[in-house]
Design a protein around this nucleic acid. Structure first.
Lengths: 259, 259
DNA sequence: ATAATACGTATCATATATTGAAACGTTCGT
DNA sequence: ACGAACGTTTCAATATATGATACGTATTAT
């Protein structure tokens, strides 16, 4: 009777029913299929209780009844999983490239994701130098004035780019921010020709950066990779050296993503 | 006040907290990452409520906090998803082959999964003939006296096969059921040489069947495919014709599964 | 064939888990 | 340096999950 009630040690602000429901889904996935009463035994409850959870999961579409009166998980979990996996897959594949670039150039390497017209930093390797850009994972940045952003924008489908240029406010954040629409479109066309983008103190004064887009299996520029550092170290001369390397990396990653 | 309470139309034996929790997970997956208060707004609740669900998902390992105080789904969903997907993947890939075999031979085609020393029927195409085997999806059958089962057993790793032969009761279910251990091991060795198994009225009187194993990416004979029908139609002569086709199909599917 | 058992599903009163408000310390934006 | 927004924790009120009960059907044993 003691081990039956020792769940009091749990944080009392957790949702017990959610834990049980997820556990039910895990059991169904592990066993492939379960009847209401089999599940009841595994969950240490009665048939009525078991049925309630399974029925809820069924209504949510994560579980279905097969012809032998057993319940089995559906492929709906795949939809969830896919969304999550995509985000992690690029990180896993980019990591070795990022390390190599980091060792070669001793500057900060960033991996960005384009979402809701913004750049989200999904991975990075910090420069070991004292003077360095200090961004946190998950931070957001505008696309129009960053290397990551511009390299992606340049390869967006026409209608999406149109929408971007016409709706996003290009407020000046640093001396060189490109605010004029025509000038901005020219810049994107230049990037499209080169394959890479340079952010020359357009978001942060003193910060320079070179970036290239990474295309996913839909040939969509979902991600970008960049090297950024203080303008005094990352001279235009230095960028010239880095250029071909980062292009090579972005092409390789695009290929790995199925593009 | 009315639209706020019209959830009374729901089946009252569903678990509301589970629905909300899953919805929270879906939102996190769709948005990539969300803060407690962003989620609160999307879920139409307050920060405390939102936090409770996220915290629960975090403790379950499905969600983690990133460095910008947002919560994002982890790869744990993949583990769930993978288990489910495996079951469906073989079905999806086997379907066209099964249809082709069905049209060629006009008999019942079965796809089986080996689990807990039993065969589970995970897909089938019924023969259009009046006289036919009537099995339901999800039905279980013993492995030792079915084509599907024997074709898999024959290619099991040694220690697993040992365990099977020594623990499973080979009770006679039909005239030709192989009950003797040595005779059974000889049969498996014959199947290993041929690559396919024949069930000659070993489980059901009057029913004959030919089956071949399908290997997964671990080179494990996780599945098998079979053609079964009445012994009077599925003569040994007929089986001779079918043999090479079913072998070809099973090899192709093994290859597609990464074996 | 028939009885007995196991099972899936539905309903209800009651016990309990969830809820929203309130509060505290921290972070963020200005 | 200030105020607002946020994440987290606590607690009492109450909306919700629970277990018992019941019923019709499938499965198994006799």
């Amino acid at each position: 009777m003691v081990e039956h009630k020792n769940r009091t040690e749990k944080k009392y602000y957790n949702i017990a029913s959610l834990e049980k429901g997820i556990r039910m889904l895990e059991l169904l996935a592990a066993h492939g299929e379960l009847s209401v009463s089999e599940a009841a035994r595994l969950m240490d409850t009665n048939r009525a209780g078991s049925h309630r959870f399974i029925s809820t999961l069924k209504d949510l579409g994560y579980v279905e009844k097969n012809s032998s009166n057993k319940y089995q998980p559906t492929l709906k979990i795949m939809a969830l999983s896919q969304k999550v996996a995509d985000r992690f897959e690029i990180r896993r594949m980019a990591k070795p490239h990022m390390h190599r670039l980091s060792m070669m150039y001793k500057e900060t390497i960033n991996l960005g994701l384009f979402k809701n017209q913004e750049i989200i930093h999904i991975d990075k390797i910090d420069s070991l130098e004292v003077l360095r850009m200090d961004s946190a994972l998950g931070d957001k940045a505008p696309a129009y004035c960053t290397g990551l952003g511009k390299s992606i924008l340049a390869f967006l489908p026409d209608h999406e780019l149109d929408h971007y240029v016409n709706t996003v406010d290009r407020r000046p954040l640093a001396p060189n921010t490109i605010t004029d629409k025509d000038e901005f479109l020219q810049e994107l066309s230049r990037i499209r020709r080169n394959g890479y983008a340079i952010d020359d103190e357009e978001m942060t004064i003193g910060l320079r950066c070179i970036a290239a887009p990474i295309f996913d299996h839909n040939h969509y520029p979902a991600y970008a990779i960049s090297i950024s550092g203080p303008a005094m170290r990352l001279t235009h001369r230095a960028l010239e050296d880095i250029k071909s390397h980062i292009l090579k990396v972005s092409e390789d990653l695009s290929h790995k993503m199925g593009s």
